[in-house]
Simulated scan of single mutants.
Amino acid sequence: MRNMTETQLTDVVVERYASTPDARLRYLLQTLIVALHDYVREARLTETEWMEAIQFLTRTGQMCDDKRQEMILLSDNLGISALVNLVSAGAPEGATETTVVGPFYVPNSPQREWGETILLRETDEPSLIVRGRVVDCQGAPIPDAGIEVWQTDSNGMYDIQDPTQAVDNLRGHYRTNAKGEFLIRTIRPTSYPIPTDGPVGELLEATARHPWRPAHIHAIVTAPGHRPLVTHLFDAEDAYLDSDVVFAVKESLIRNYAQNSSEEDAARFGVSAPFWELETDFILAAQD
């Protein structure tokens, strides 16, 4: 242990983890140690800088609770979440692409009936009807698939951020019919800034980056025998598509909204005209 070089120290630390029983955990830890040690050597990191990093991560953890996940927010803003998604998704060609889940997912969203709205407040805003099918990669419909959706309200905040919103506002869990079809009623999403009142906000300010995400609807789509799909539906007209603060936009997930002024169509969907329409299919890959 005495008089070790920088590289020898790394070798010794890696060797100390060589007896980790779980092979995958052993590989993950040893690879992480090598990468971190390489970073320290390459950056010539000082003790003061490392202590600042430790304090930053400590504050990040302290910001987390049952409604706020600052660690996920940090992962998103460093592009780690997007990179993990890219290297691990592995969906076959033709399946809907995945993207990050984000820090504002809440499990067990309430079940919504066919075409029921997820907006739990009165509004004069035009409704948005999202409809389509859940199908497999061969185009066959998948009946009774689950579609869980969530989005911000018009003020750019999720219900768990905003005490003025009803619990489960703009969240809901739908199911497809026998033809694999679904019908969701909501409002058109808006672009919004991520929270900047914590360590992630400090990082954005220090690096002169904006905090904005392009307008989108989150969706998790599940069905027996198929891979779960975590994805977004992005608004094609949004100004932040090319500078999403969490690097989650994929070209195939950008959608166009159409305005419908037909009173007949509005009555069919139980909304007022004019309203917005978004037609999209979710294509699920078979479970390995």
Rank of each mutant, 00 (worst) to 15 (best):
M157T: 15
A208T: 08
V130S: 01
A239Y: 09
I118A: 05
Y240V: 12
S243N: 13
S243F: 02
E251I: 11
T7V: 09
L241T: 08
G156K: 01
N177W: 00
I254N: 08
A89P: 07
D38T: 08
V271H: 02
E47H: 06
H173T: 12
H218P: 10
R2N: 09
R255Y: 11
A248D: 15
R171W: 06
L45N: 00
P143W: 10
E116D: 02
R59C: 07
R121Y: 00
Q111I: 12
W276Q: 01
R121C: 09
I147R: 07
A140M: 13
F234V: 05
P107G: 05
Q69V: 05
D159G: 00
W50K: 02
V221S: 04
T196S: 08
I72H: 03
V14R: 09
P274H: 01
G139L: 13
M51K: 05
S272A: 10
L170N: 07
T96I: 06
A43H: 09
T231A: 03
G225M: 03
V13P: 05
E251S: 12
Y105F: 15
S243H: 07
D38Q: 08
D265V: 00
H226S: 11
D124W: 04
T99M: 05
N108D: 10
E205K: 04
G90L: 11
R59N: 13
T98Q: 14
W276V: 04
G146H: 08
V101I: 12
V246F: 01
E205G: 11
V12N: 01
T46W: 06
R185Q: 14
A178K: 12
W212L: 15
P195I: 10
K179T: 15
T98A: 13
L57Q: 05
T58C: 02
A286S: 08
G201T: 07
H218K: 00
T280N: 02
A53H: 00
L78C: 14
R175M: 11
E6M: 11
R59V: 10
I54A: 04
T152S: 06
R268L: 06
T196W: 03
S127G: 08
L170F: 10
D244R: 01
P21Q: 04
G102F: 05
R112L: 12
I147Q: 05
V100F: 00
V221I: 14
Q259C: 14
